[in-house]
Design a protein around this nucleic acid. Structure first.
Lengths: 201, 201, 201, 201
DNA sequence: GATGAATGAGTCTTCATTCAT
DNA sequence: CATGAATGAAGACTCATTCAT
């Protein structure tokens, strides 16, 4: 299924992926039939199988694409920042903004985690993102800007905060993503830098 | 489908729910057929429809049960603690331990979030748990033990950290749940209490 | 797909096999759809898959059954005959009669030979029948009733004559199977016993 | 679909027929798709439908061609032989050699017999070949070289022996076609000339 | 209470064929 | 002549659900 596509073909394929992603996010992967997808686009069923060898493959491709895109966004946001803590902050903010702009895809990540055949692909992508965060954390620790702790655990904690806040406040309640991002950053930096005893002073 | 069940009936029903939950968690809700469930238990299809009006109902019932159980566990862990921060800490630890002991159910929560008909039920349960955490946070703020911030946001941040660490380190990597819980508590308290500038000294 | 069947179940299964065999013989294996089969029997599609795991499996089962039946018939015909030549003659006659009574099945043998996945099963069955004939031929040669020649080749020659005459004169032209059998026997015995030069006298 | 073809066109068409015949013989007519054929030749689908109006037509054309070729070969082998028995012998040998060189096509004959729409064309071709053999047999009988018997029946018996031995020993077991042909001739002449009682002498 | 045969709408997928480019 | 995207009817198979026994 590695077809060399014409310009029109590429557009068609993207169209299918976008539409399908929206449906999958809305009704779920299984409840969305291939028939529904092609009908929604007003094309014949054959079109689908011209571009994808199966429904599963389509989903996997959407997943891969989304992960690449998210990562690209994060990279661009961090780019040339020297301070590891600043890199973490900008990474969180970038994730949040991306999540706000792609609620469909964020939702698919959720589902992908629930079936092994998709979880595999998901984990591979997540590992890259985590490795990135781990890198920043290690730098910060090395530079004495952060108390010593398991960087992998910290990286996942950041991920957890970011995802949960994005899901609840951005996707479900449509709050301002900047504000949510700021809250996430605040919380995470607190978690990373260690607690300050309020009463102890 | 509100049958008065004999003792044997109740056991049967629980057996069905446990087995189904395991399958749902392992292969996913949709890929698991009713036939597979009853065959796995060595009973006829009639049994299934004697206790549940549909597959969907079964899932919903598992979900409700799991949420009740988790909540009961958390309540018991917090019980008679006076310090709100201590209550939060024990709540996190209790969640982690529960999650370690019920990875199946934790997995189902994930899936339930991806289809609206289940997400509804899920949210209702989550709201209760969040309301609880919000309550503790508010207390802590009121008692001057925590800087002022949006308690709902903080509660969700805690939830995010707990879930992500449980999923990654307990379910996927089978690490010691006590240690993971401690890391989660550390991170969350840091996030709640506010950042301490290491270099600012 | 190894179900223990009730009496009714066994009848159903046989009904499906008989009907399918007729359709396969009439229109061919591929052009006959499962839908056509179940519709012809006035049952739902599920019934088919309750008894057979696939269309291919059904065909294979029909094939196996037919081969067993043919073989049983041949065995019964030969039974307690001492003379190997007589055994061959009766074997040919039995095949011919069976073929006349089961033109459907005879036709399926033809098709089965054209696709590897079926040909395998077919060859296994044919080998048994051939082995039988080879045995008789060897006996005849040993007893000096037949000139020495490759018994396997002779056995196949007999098979070829029998099949071709059955197909052409019994199936296509509906001639009397006794008469055709006699012609086959005459030809084969001639072939086996060696030529008699008419002019050589 | 009666196009006047350029030289290149004729070559293309032959290429399609040869390749398709090989695939049909290997995997069967139905399991072989038009897409597979054109892809195997590295051409577009348009090419196929430029030369053939349908897949069925292609098969029919392959069939007709094969029958003509076989017949031409037989004719050439018999050519100017006076003795009808010799003509039969050479006919058998020619069939065997042709069969060895065209196992693909021989296989297609088998399949063609299993579906009515192809069987028709097949029978027409077979009738010609049989008529030929019948002619020789009648001659032999008339010349007193062969005992009187139904010539049509005898012709088919010869056909059966030839096909079966070719299929089993040449196609499946790749034995020497000359040797197999000799065995076929021996058996058939025996069958034609009548049995010689070994013990009776 | 329990069984398992039966239903049939619905799923994914294939493929012969057409046609704009 | 040739390409390859597009069509859509049709196919094999699944599965939640029902019901006679």
């Amino acid at each position: 299924m590695d077809r060399r596509l014409t310009q029109r073909g590429t557009a068609r394929k993207r169209q299918l992926m976008t539409f399908a992603a929206a449906r999958f996010a809305e009704h779920g992967y299984h409840p969305t039939s291939v028939a529904e997808i092609v009908k929604g686009l007003g094309v014949g069923k054959g079109v689908f199988y011209w571009y994808f060898s199966s429904k599963e493959e389509l989903f996997l491709e959407i997943l891969r694409d989304a992960q690449h895109d998210l990562r690209r966004t994060q990279k661009a946001a961090i780019n040339d920042l020297d301070d590891p803590i600043l890199r973490i902050e900008h990474g969180i903010r970038a994730s949040m903004v991306w999540s706000a702009e792609h609620r469909d895809l964020a939702n698919l990540f959720l589902f992908a985690a629930t079936e092994e055949r998709f979880a595999h692909s998901l984990r591979k992508g997540a590992e890259v993102a985590v490795a990135d965060a781990v890198h920043h954390v290690k730098d910060a620790i090395a530079e004495g800007k952060m108390p010593d702790a398991d960087p992998v655990m910290l990286a996942h904690a950041i991920l957890g905060v970011t995802r949960e806040l994005a899901k609840t406040f951005i996707h479900e309640r449509a709050e301002d993503s900047e504000a949510v991002a700021t809250a996430a950053v605040e919380f995470c930096l607190g978690g990373l830098l260690g607690r300050r005893d309020l009463r102890g002073d």
